[in-house]
Amino acid sequence: MTRTLAVANQKGGVAKTTTVASLGAALAAAGRRVLLVDLDPQGSLTFSLGHDPDALESSVHEVLLGDVAASDVLLETVDGPSLLPATIDLAGAEAMLLMRAGREFALRRALGTIAADFDVVLIDCPPSLGVLTLNGLTAADEVLVPLQCETLAHRGVGQLLRTVADVQAITNPGLTLLGVLPTLYDARTTHSRDVLADVSGRYGVDLLAPPIPRTVRFAEASASGSSVLHGRKNKGGEAYRQLAANLLAHWDGGADLVLVDAG
């Protein structure tokens, strides 16, 4: 059975794209057939995995509007996963979808034609709570929320959780909140630990382990057109390998998710 995981947070700069690229690479390295879906009009995932959005003739934009089959748009990446890319044209898809009936189901319909070819689908949602993010949540089985371990990081989390609840009630009753993934974590500071405790206590959400550390390797990897798992060993790549192992044990064997002890 294909697992579809939406990675969402309407706040930018929380490592959504890094998480999709790195977790996707880790799952592919574990032998899974992985599809990455770029739903962000900025095309950051597409660019960071070695493809120039400005040079693409078609993307998820045309797929959502029903003009092109998803299978005809797929690209390969250095780390193994297939990619359904995005271009700036996707910004216009939101307005066009608003005029269509069943607009929240466009991505689910599109993925239905290719999902059986993959074990895991990871969706990189844009930093907003618009129609594109609703499409990602409606198409997903689970949602993962990256959250940076910094002051005021939780601003907007409550709104996102309300949106998830609305999607569960209206377009996707089967959607579950997998948990919050702490990112940009600095284990040397009490500040990072205080943020985790605050988020856990305020919203009652699970914090997935391990926290993803702050490291310059993420920026270097994006510039090189690959994920942080490609190349020399580093703490960021190891953290995403551990996260992948955590998820696979949960998905395959029903094991409890390994969680962060927020104290």
Rank of each mutant, 00 (worst) to 15 (best):
R3H: 09
R3W: 15
L5C: 09
A8I: 07
Q10C: 04
T19C: 11
A21D: 13
A26R: 06
V34A: 12
V37Y: 14
D40M: 04
P41E: 10
G43T: 01
G50Y: 13
E62N: 10
D67P: 06
A70F: 10
V73A: 08
V78H: 15
P81Y: 12
A86S: 15
A93T: 12
A101C: 11
E104L: 10
E104M: 02
L107S: 02
R108E: 05
L111I: 01
G112S: 12
V120L: 05
P127H: 07
L129A: 07
L134N: 07
G136K: 10
T138P: 04
D141N: 06
V143L: 03
V143W: 06
V143F: 12
L144A: 02
E150C: 04
H154T: 02
R155N: 14
R155M: 10
V157D: 06
L161P: 13
D166V: 01
V167P: 05
N172S: 07
G174H: 09
L177C: 14
L177W: 15
L177P: 14
G179R: 04
T190M: 03
A197E: 07
D198A: 07
D198R: 07
S200T: 03
A209N: 05
P211S: 02
P213D: 09
S222M: 10
V228I: 14
G231I: 00
N234R: 03
G237M: 01
E238W: 01
R241S: 07
Q242H: 05
A245P: 08
W251H: 04
G254A: 00
L259T: 01
D261P: 07
